[in-house]
């Protein structure tokens, strides 16, 4: 086990993690759909201590107009961590990390959207991390994909995501803030659950070649579960609509 992982004991003798989970156990996941009135689609996600809200506007007119694409929608995505979401106040200006995450989240969502159905329009995805505890980009993807579906944007599939971490030689699913800080590796993975296509893959830390395959298998399983929670949240919302209840 690395020097870092020893400094904070991330796995006990029984193989339990700092929050009592087993290596292959996710944190509790809660998804609520359509909580915002102004947005065309929205979703609120709680993943353990993470609280993330995503709003989708569009397809709508592109401003500035010269950015419009003749053959497809312009997908824009902004991931922001709110200043009070972390232990030390974070300045509200976008950090380099946030700029990179905005890009990879956009590229994780893009393959799922029929962008070519909406030429000369913009689809804007805004993500606010209200509270952060490791895995905010994966929680953001879960929220954003659900919000896109809520907005009625034509999609090939939903997108769900989970991070596989490494503690010593053990692969663990859905790492929390402590495990991210003191663990030996972090591999966020997003997939279109039904098509089985990977739309986001990043990694830092040191992984053996065969661990990539195992991590992808482990992630696929949990992504199928996350997908079922997304679908249930969407269905529940629209079942209420059918019953005549006002949503939002």
């Amino acid at each position: 086990m690395s020097r870092k992982a020893q400094a904070v004991k991330l796995l006990d003798e029984q193989g339990r993690r700092v929050d009592g989970r087993l290596p292959d156990e996710m944190r509790p996941l809660k998804i609520e759909v359509g909580k915002l009135k102004n947005a065309d689609g929205s979703a609120y996600v709680e993943l353990g201590n993470n609280k993330v809200i995503a709003a989708v506007y569009g397809p709508r007119e592109v401003v500035p107009r010269h950015e419009a694409l003749p053959d497809r929608a312009l997908l824009r995505c902004r991931y922001s961590m709110l200043p009070f979401s972390v232990a030390e106040r974070k300045s509200p200006q976008p950090t380099r990390r946030e700029i990179e995450i905005s890009k990879v989240v956009r590229e994780a969502l893009a393959p799922a959207i029929f962008l070519e159905e909406y030429p000369r329009t913009a689809i804007d995805v805004y993500i606010h991390v209200i509270e952060a505890d490791g895995g905010t980009r994966t929680a953001s993807i879960i929220a954003a994909a659900t919000a896109l579906a809520d907005a009625g944007v034509a999609m090939r599939d939903l997108v769900a995501a989970v991070a596989i971490g490494k503690i010593g030689e053990v692969l663990v699913v859905d790492i929390n803030g402590l495990e991210d800080q003191y663990g030996d590796g972090d591999m966020p993975i997003a997939m279109m659950p039904q098509l089985g296509e990977v739309t986001l893959l990043q990694a830092d830390g040191v992984f053996k070649p065969e661990e990539i395959k195992r991590a992808l298998e482990m992630a696929s399983k949990h992504i199928r579960y996350i997908h079922s929670v997304q679908v249930r949240a969407l269905k529940e919302t629209y079942a209420k609509v059918e019953e005549g209840e006002v949503v939002g």
């Binding site: 739309t199 893959l201 040191v206 661990e211 990539i212 298998e217």
Partner: peptide
């Protein structure tokens, strides 16, 4: 031969088989 960083880029996707 260990892997110390991965980054997928671009608006498309990979199957798991393609990644491996």
């Amino acid at each position: 031969g260990e892997i110390c960083a991965i980054q997928k880029m671009g608006a498309g996707s990979f199957s798991v088989k393609e990644i491996l």
